[in-house]
């Protein structure tokens, strides 16, 4: 029930933002459409979304977004530098790193965050192993790779999802 409620709140907020008008017709249409959407996507909606009903997690999620945007901007200057540099300074390869995160949604977000941050792109995920394409492999030591790629997000995602 709690899941359905979260689902309803999420869909309804999206509807309200998209229509951007508060009158009785739009709001009641929103309720009906949200209910239909719930019926259609019951199984697709991640159950862990219910966690966001707690304000603390929500706050951490917002902080995480800001933290992520900082790294996205860094990533772009990194790409710009590599693309413009005449010698094309890259040393690519696929590395394997392990995560300590347990929740499915946290792992999904971690994979997405890795893709958006400087020089890394998640290629495959197998349980707790992440295979990551790294445009400029700085070190061959797995521990060091783990520290550079994953640790900067892991502690924060743990607060958001676990």
């Amino acid at each position: 029930m709690k899941n359905r409620l979260t689902q309803f709140i999420t869909y309804f907020i999206f509807w309200m933002l998209l229509t951007w008008s508060i009158n009785i017709q739009d709001v009641s249409a929103g309720v009906v459409v949200s209910l239909i959407a719930i019926a259609l996507t019951r199984d697709l909606f991640p159950e862990e979304m219910a966690k966001f009903l707690s304000p603390v997690r929500f706050l951490w999620a917002v902080l995480y977004l800001i933290y992520l945007i900082y790294y996205i901007i860094l990533a772009n200057f990194d790409v710009a530098y590599r693309v413009i540099h005449p010698a094309l300074p890259i040393r690519p390869g696929i590395v394997k790193v392990k995560t300590g995160l347990k929740s499915e949604m946290a792992r999904t977000m971690l994979a997405n965050s890795i893709t958006l941050t400087p020089g890394t792109l998640s290629v495959d995920v197998n349980g707790e192993d992440y295979y990551i394409h790294w445009i400029n492999i700085m070190t061959d030591d797995p521990e060091e790779q783990r520290r550079i790629i994953i640790s900067r997000f892991e502690w924060m995602l743990r607060r958001v999802f676990e």
Partner: peptide, 14 residues
Amino acid sequence: YNRLQAATKSVTLG
């Protein structure tokens, strides 16, 4: 893979 790197990051922020 390298091309995807450039494409995803820049195009997302851009």
